[in-house]
Amino acid sequence: MNARTATLVLVSGMSGSGKSVALNTFEDLGFYCVDNLPATLLPGLVADVTGGDDGGPAKIAVGIDVRNRHDELHRVPEALAAVGALGFDPRLVFFDAGDAVLLKRYADTRRRHPLSRLTQSLPEAIALEREVLRPLRQLADAVVDTSDMNVHQLRRHVTTEFGLGSEAGMSLLFESFAYRRGVPAGADFVFDARALPNPHWIPSLRPLSGRDAAVSDYLLDQPDVEEFFLQVRGFLDTWLPRLQADSTRSYATIAFGCSGGRHRSVFLAERMASHARASGWQEVAVHHRELD
């Protein structure tokens, strides 16, 4: 497997810093994902999933953190070297947050810290975890401080910084949102779907989203929706290739908004992403701000 196209992202960091959100985002971006893998099993996993006739996935993301046996964490550099010999370009991304932020997140979710014991307070568990993971943080290729990020901002950061850059050229992120919560920061193109028929006013469709077949079928039957889609598709088919040719950017964000961000905008983002993939764009991601 060619190292230029084979990618391994090792996801590590403090409990409560957003590692699970990051790993789920990598999965949405087409990575083969495994969480809480013993470090010593990493080379075997990579060899196994890439050993089929088709070569297996070219993008793998693996979560390794304090849930590992602590003596195994010291063998991460050795495991990464072994993975490199298999043709992958391993990258360690460490997610972190301030102690006060981690304490608040645990208080809000009421989850138990993996190192907490009956005789150990939460601040003590966080301090111990930080000490245990210090070697991994020092080894990291990138450290992401999520202290001031919400879930949506973290997903966007992972998508744009780690998930979309490729030698295939500019990559696309299709995003849905609700106008009542504001337009997503950083969107390159924004399309307003509020003039289209709204499934919200149909009782059977209201609790569903644009991902559901019943909502899709309803919107596909609406002439205005089809006209909107075809016009936007024509615009993007014309100008996205020119944007790619005339700039050095690695990604572009195309956002669709409606009143609640559940039906019309979600449907359009999903449908346009499917069209982009069918048109040959190799890196396409979808993010539904009000659903994800």
Rank of each mutant, 00 (worst) to 15 (best):
residue 1 M to W: 14
residue 4 R to K: 15
residue 5 T to C: 04
residue 8 L to K: 11
residue 14 M to N: 11
residue 25 T to R: 06
residue 28 D to R: 15
residue 30 G to E: 10
residue 32 Y to K: 04
residue 36 N to H: 07
residue 37 L to H: 08
residue 41 L to K: 05
residue 42 L to F: 02
residue 45 L to P: 08
residue 46 V to Y: 05
residue 49 V to T: 12
residue 51 G to D: 13
residue 53 D to F: 01
residue 53 D to M: 05
residue 55 G to A: 04
residue 55 G to W: 01
residue 56 G to Q: 14
residue 57 P to L: 13
residue 59 K to E: 12
residue 59 K to C: 12
residue 61 A to C: 07
residue 63 G to Q: 07
residue 63 G to L: 04
residue 65 D to K: 03
residue 75 R to T: 12
residue 80 L to D: 04
residue 88 F to N: 05
residue 94 F to W: 12
residue 98 G to K: 12
residue 99 D to N: 06
residue 104 K to Y: 00
residue 105 R to H: 10
residue 105 R to F: 02
residue 114 P to S: 12
residue 115 L to H: 04
residue 123 P to G: 06
residue 129 E to L: 09
residue 131 E to M: 02
residue 132 V to F: 01
residue 133 L to F: 08
residue 134 R to I: 00
residue 137 R to I: 03
residue 140 A to W: 12
residue 143 V to I: 15
residue 145 D to W: 00
residue 146 T to W: 02
residue 160 T to K: 10
residue 160 T to R: 13
residue 164 L to F: 03
residue 166 S to H: 15
residue 166 S to D: 15
residue 171 S to Q: 06
residue 172 L to A: 12
residue 176 S to D: 10
residue 179 Y to V: 08
residue 180 R to C: 02
residue 184 P to K: 04
residue 189 F to M: 09
residue 194 R to H: 12
residue 195 A to P: 00
residue 196 L to Q: 14
residue 198 N to F: 09
residue 201 W to S: 13
residue 204 S to R: 15
residue 205 L to N: 14
residue 207 P to C: 05
residue 212 D to Q: 11
residue 213 A to H: 11
residue 213 A to W: 05
residue 214 A to S: 13
residue 218 Y to W: 13
residue 218 Y to M: 02
residue 219 L to T: 08
residue 220 L to W: 07
residue 222 Q to H: 02
residue 227 E to F: 00
residue 235 F to D: 08
residue 239 W to M: 07
residue 248 T to F: 04
residue 249 R to L: 12
residue 250 S to A: 14
residue 255 A to V: 10
residue 258 C to Q: 10
residue 259 S to G: 06
residue 261 G to T: 09
residue 261 G to L: 09
residue 263 H to V: 09
residue 267 F to M: 01
residue 270 E to A: 08
residue 270 E to N: 13
residue 273 A to D: 03
residue 280 G to T: 07
residue 285 A to F: 03
residue 292 D to N: 14
